[in-house]
């Protein structure tokens, strides 16, 4: 019997979902605490930050780029947000400033990549340090905390029984999916990643798109910082250390090719959920955080290994 067409064209995504489901099944057998509403909401909450950053990285990686600066940009944007709130700015305005700072950092990345012709790895590695330094400078290395209750709602509020951050994440994913599938920009991202020169010769505004892609990456890192700051009720200049690696991992587990041109936003969401569920489940099982690191690393390797085995079998 032939599998349904949808499964053939979305084989990789179906695989990711299958892994996720199996993982959940195993965990619910191993511990009764896993499959409870409160725990699942907890997982979702913990996944939110990584998931939102990973959307931006998915765009960047789809375009055959990489962004190592998102963790630092998150920290910088977070302290800007916190300082603005402390200075008495209205919440929407403070959030706007925060996202703007993130997008500006991303724009710098994009300009360096598109016009300075720096390899994305180098450009964003540089900015990773610059943004971190900036965050430490403006705060003098100290956390900024104490915000209005209306801001805290972003972390603690619920709508229809689902926490606000989860709604935010779902909103970001819905929009990101739509943009990728249904706008020129989305098509261009994939085309540039698939073949930059052919795209250029087809009239795709490659440089402008790249700036947009990295700006989006920075903006989403800043958006994640809003949720993180609200949850912790404080902004740390050392927040977001190695978050870029988690986001890259979620993207890769989700099936986006590091070579660019192939992948999906949906896959990244499942990838982020897999990481979240894994961490949560290992915690519930009382596995030490040291061992957790080993497990997560192995999962990342396994995901990519499966991909290459799958591709190899097609030869």
């Amino acid at each position: 019997m032939m599998p349904p067409r949808f499964l053939v064209t979305h084989a990789r995504q179906a695989g990711t979902v299958a892994v996720f489901v199996v993982l959940c099944l195993i965990l619910s057998l191993l511990t009764p605490h896993f499959l409870t509403t409160s725990n699942l909401l907890n997982v979702a909450q913990q996944t939110v930050i990584n998931a939102v950053i990973a959307v931006g990285l998915t765009y960047v990686i789809l375009s055959a780029g990489i962004d190592l600066s998102v963790g630092s940009v998150l920290a910088l944007a977070g302290v800007v947000l916190a300082l603005a709130l402390q200075a008495g700015w209205p919440v929407p305005l403070a959030i706007g400033a925060c996202v703007l700072v993130g997008a500006a950092c991303g724009t710098v990345n994009g300009l360096l990549v598109a016009f300075g012709r720096l390899p994305p790895f180098i450009a964003t590695l540089g900015l990773m340090s610059v943004a971190r330094g900036g965050a430490l400078l403006v705060t003098d290395g100290r956390p900024v905390s104490g915000f209005d209750a209306s801001f805290r709602w972003l972390a603690t509020g619920e709508v229809l029984g689902i926490p606000v951050p989860v709604w935010c994440m779902l909103g970001v994913y819905a929009i990101a999916h739509f943009v990728l599938k249904r706008t020129k920009f989305g098509r261009y991202v994939v085309a540039i990643g698939g073949n930059e020169e052919a795209s250029l010769l087809s009239g795709v505004p490659v440089a402008a798109c790249k700036v947009g892609i990295y700006a989006l990456g920075g903006g989403l890192a800043a958006a994640a910082s809003v949720l993180l700051t609200a949850r912790l009720n404080s902004a740390q200049p050392i927040a977001g250390l190695s978050y870029e690696l988690d986001a890259i991992a979620a993207t890769v587990i989700g099936g986006t090719s590091l070579m660019g041109g192939q992948g999906s936003v949906f896959g990244t969401l499942v990838g982020a959920l897999i990481m979240g569920v894994l961490r949560n489940g290992l915690n519930l099982l009382g596995v030490s955080s040291y061992v957790q690191q080993v497990v997560i690393g192995a999962v990342i390797i396994a995901a990519v290994l499966l991909d290459s085995v799958f591709k190899g079998s097609k030869r």
Binding site: K181, K184, R187, A191, G194, N195, E197, G261
Partner: peptide, 28 residues
Amino acid sequence: RQGLVLCRDIEENTSLAHLGRFTRAGVL
């Protein structure tokens, strides 16, 4: 190397140079 985005499908390659034709209010 210069003409096609090999890893994408026929529709995507065909429309690449003129996506505006299929876009209304920014939606493809």
